[in-house]
Design a binder for these strands. Structure first.
Lengths: 247, 247
DNA sequence: CTGGTCATACCGGTCTGACCACCGCTGGAT
DNA sequence: ATCCAGCGGTGGTCAGACCGGTATGACCAG
């Protein structure tokens, strides 16, 4: 219902800024921040579910009384935060909360701070021993089935690349079985770095051969509800590769 | 005064796309992604140092043969990733690699997945026991001085809010003393959630009283290079609050 | 009735060229 | 020497346009 008179450039923007709900503490200084915050709340509150399509950019621009570039910046923020995915010609879609995301921000941070292979191994050891112990206590039938399948796929890996892929899948399944979303997310955040480490290890037959049995051992310990054994199996497994690279 | 050149859109854009270095595996599908990648590499490679100002948006637009909106989207990405900070009227500045950042993306992820107090406590226990053991092996004089100061400030906290602030500072110092950037970053990523947990604990005098001595104990164990004692002190400390909240 | 083709409406991707508000510096007035 | 007005640079925002993908339904051939 804009009269569209006075077309001398900016028609005086009737709505200065979207006064956002104001419930959260973050004060949006930009209009695009305000839009991003508003949309993020809409996603987090479940008002729009995973898989849903957001209104089009033009639509949102109208709704917020802003321009498309501002809406696009807001969408870019949400994309970067992993909440949505924008597809050309189709629209912006809300991502599943548990999807395998990249966590670029953390990855960048790790790289910026010059993380070494040793430090990464240390972290994996911590994360995965704890996860395996928790998994031994909490894994349900589904987890065990996934884990078992992962072990078998890993053991029958053909190429080194295949091995890396399956290895990663196994460890991801292990962490998922811990039923601790924080640990799971943290593990996901080092995934890119972990892959690089695995690629180096996969090229060494010695490491591969010695690490091999521990995967199954870990699975069986979790299945048999033996946290200590599970922890030990993972610790042994990860220590092999770690000790090979003195630093 | 309109030349009525009937601008039929794009006059032929001489430079189709910035062919980015191509070293990294990520294929940029958008021009703004390409710009973001290029700028990120510039930051990560140290070509522009922390504190430096990036060229202005107009300048970058010319350099990349793109428009300002595209450059702005790229800068928005970098902002979201925590690499730069854009200040109105001044420019975009490269942030320090170690600055206390918010890690909103991960925080969002944790909340989306419905993290419970118990799961968070679990994670802290894992993270901090490991960090304290590492700190006992690696802390240098600076770390110890910071840690000691933190303990003393914590013990003389006046208000509950003060206590929370100092408690957080102590634990951050502890984690920093581990000299493992991955663990440190992970701890930072749960900071917002941790504060919420601490606020609840700080309201309970019983918890405060019982937790109190462990801070100093942890510090002394680290100072005396006793990883096991350090681990035990932190574990005891964190277990108190955790056990109080059955779930 | 089925299957493929094509027009079309919609959508994100991008450009242009403005105007505004804010920051910092500088030069003139006091 | 001090102070402040002014100016140039910078980010913040807008409107409107064109491009090239993506569906969807109408239409025609088999």
């Amino acid at each position: 219902m804009e009269p569209v008179n006075d077309q001398s450039g900016h028609p005086g923007r009737p709505e200065p800024l979207r006064r956002h709900a104001g419930l959260s503490a973050d004060s949006a200084r930009n209009s695009s921040d305000a839009i991003a915050t508003s949309l993020a709340e809409r996603v987090l509150s479940g008002e729009v579910a995973a898989g849903d399509r957001l209104p089009s950019e033009r639509h949102l621009a109208m709704e917020f009384g802003a321009s498309r570039p501002m809406v696009r910046e807001a969408l870019r923020s949400l994309t970067e935060r992993g909440l949505i995915s924008v597809e050309r010609g189709r629209g912006a879609f809300v991502l599943n909360a548990t999807g395998p995301r990249r966590f670029q921000p953390l990855d960048l941070e790790y790289r910026r701070r010059g993380t070494t292979a040793r430090q990464l191994s240390e972290t994996r050891l911590m994360l995965e021993t704890e996860a395996s112990a928790l998994a031994a206590a909490r894994a349900d039938d589904d987890d065990l089935a996934v884990l078992k399948a992962a072990v078998e796929r890993l053991e029958s890996s053909a190429t080194p690349l295949d091995r890396v892929r399956n290895d990663l899948a196994f460890h991801a399944a292990l962490v998922a079985a811990s039923h601790n979303p924080v640990i799971e997310t943290m593990f996901a955040s080092i995934q890119a770095l972990t892959v690089e480490l695995m690629v180096r290890s996969a090229g060494d037959p010695e490491i591969v051969r010695k690490s091999e049995p521990y995967h199954r051992a870990a699975y069986e310990a979790i299945r048999d509800r033996e946290p200590i054994a599970a922890r030990a199996a993972i610790a042994s497994h990860l220590s092999i590769a770690a000790s090979t690279y003195g630093d």
